[in-house]
Design a protein around this nucleic acid. Sequence first.
RNA 1: GGUCCGGUAGCUCAGCUGGAUAGAGCAUCAGCCUUCUAAGCUGAGGGUCAUUGGUUCGAAUCCAAUCCGGAUCACCA
Length: 632
Amino acid sequence: MSILHILSQYTIKSLGELYPGSFSAGDFQINQTKPEFEGDYTLVLFSLVKKLKIAPEALCDALGRKLVQQHPEIFSSYNIIKGFLNLSISDSYWVNILSNSVDPDFGKSAPTGRRVMVEYSSPNTNKPLHLGHLRNNFLGWSVAEILKFNGNEVFKSCIVNDRGVHICKSMLAWEKWGNKETPKSTGIKGDHLVGDYYVKFENALKREAEELKQKEGNGNFVHYDAPTADKVQVLSNALANLNPTDTKYTDKKEKIEGELKELRRGATPLMKEVKQMLVDWEAGKPEVIALWKQMNNWVYEGFDVTYKKIGTDFDKVYYESNTYLLGKDIVEEGLKKNVFFKKDDGSVWIDLQKEGLDEKLVLRKDGTSVYITQDIGLAEQKYREFNTDQSIYVIADEQNYHMTVLKLICQKLGLAFAHDIFHLSYGMVELPSGRMKSREGTVVDADDMIEEMVKTAQKHTTELGKVNDFTEEELSQLYETLGIGAIKFYLLRVDPKKRMVFNPEESIDFHGFTGPFIQYTHARIKSILRKAQPGGTVNYSAALLPLEKELLVSIEHYPEVLQQAAKELNPSVLANYLFSLAKTFNSFYSEHQVANAETEEKKQLRLRLAVSTGNILSSGLKMLGIRAPERM
RNA sequence: GGUCCGGUAGCUCAGCUGGAUAGAGCAUCAGCCUUCUAAGCUGAGGGUCAUUGGUUCGAAUCCAAUCCGGAUCACCA
């Protein structure tokens, strides 16, 4: 049990003995005492002052006295400043926690039997992974590991978006301009090769759309079918009638121009070909299917290399080409139960206006399903296959609306798992110059990023020359450990919910609040432990020095941090803690000798501090997907 | 326009279930390697916690309004 729990329980008990009525943890607050005051933990009791009609000082004094009196093994003394009750925890309590914390599994919870699925990564197969995908992968993987450590049975899953217009774009471009080149013939990684054709397609599409714009300037609109031509007409008129003095003029103009642009793109010969290709794919046309399989396989080979490097793994992989028809039968049932309704044209909708949302389409008028329909189906299938208590979706916050709707629909359908759907929504990664846009070529490629970080690790390591005796194999291992550790930590140290700015210069820094800083601390500890190992027993009688105690307090806090990280599904809580622990250790290390301590007693204590800190750093980093090197 | 999210040091971020004088890292400046790894340590400067009002013993934290930024509101995925 943690000191916070103990404190809380004893406080409740003592209050009950001192005053009439019953008390709960909500009646007071426990904070770590500010360094400028004496004490370890501070009880904030102001909310009880009114309830008990007693002066803060008197309350603090009565409670402080009682706590120290009844539990001298825990509380050594107390003091009162401005109505805050500062409690000092006895050194023996702190020293005693070492018997638990030297265990490599310190902080691990017993199995709870709770089953959780974490869906993450979920890439499209038309282009290589970029920085945003890395945040998703690291987050999902880490959350899964944190949940495991907290006693949950976890299943990592992934839905591969392996079909659709975007893939057809790459396919068509390769067919047209590819000259049958392959990853092998070009030496280009498969996912990058396919991505290159996606870019080629987009560029060609842009040119065709530009040509259409020229034609439209000359009054030629024959490339549109009748209904689209009408729409274009309406929009063009609206554009012409905009009042330039309107405060929202530029907004409105951009919006209309955007819509016109989309219509124009849709009317290009290339888009028409792509749409035909998609129809052919759905019809199972052999040569289209063959091409699709071939190009997807190239992508998978590329992804495998990247996934292996960054340590991404799954217990279950779903493919959209297998699941895109799911959900239709659920919609049919829902229609019978009047959860959905059918419009005159045959399309099926759900009305979410009571929930403050809009009407949402679930089946097109031609009876085909849309994204959300598949998602309902897949959610149902996952539940059936894994019998989960919770299903977490790691998806960027641009899909907040979609995920709200998904959950709501499942609830309205009365599906058993509906309530257990949780959208772990994370913010997008931006560059100092703004948002990454694949169409404008401002995306940071994941493979490039990793390579650069590994090279930076190599550069630093070589300059410092501390591991010159390593073999080539050991060295390249170390470079990856450090480079990938740096980027993982960089992306995980920020609250997932918040969007974050990726600063290329800052990210390659290996000093300060970084992965390598923590890895370095771990290596230092291992270096000490190669010289001496704890032995005998800790029979500590001298007073703890400030930095010894600070370390112990931090070590004691670890299980609590893990619980919080699991509860909030937030690895940044862990990342911040590990940094703080490492920092404390480094201060301690620079002040005090461990292996050559002043006395044997101190040596034994400090060796255990080193062992415990090393364990926590290594186990914590592991849950962030970061390896802790023995030497660096 | 509706809905949702955010605004804390020059930059990137903690702190947000209300508590004492708001913290880190980077950057800047000044120190520390004959002692277990200096990818480290110690110190200094740097703040109208977007603005205004409210709630109360107490507000960066809660509420309201305003300003600024972002996301989203497809028979796309």
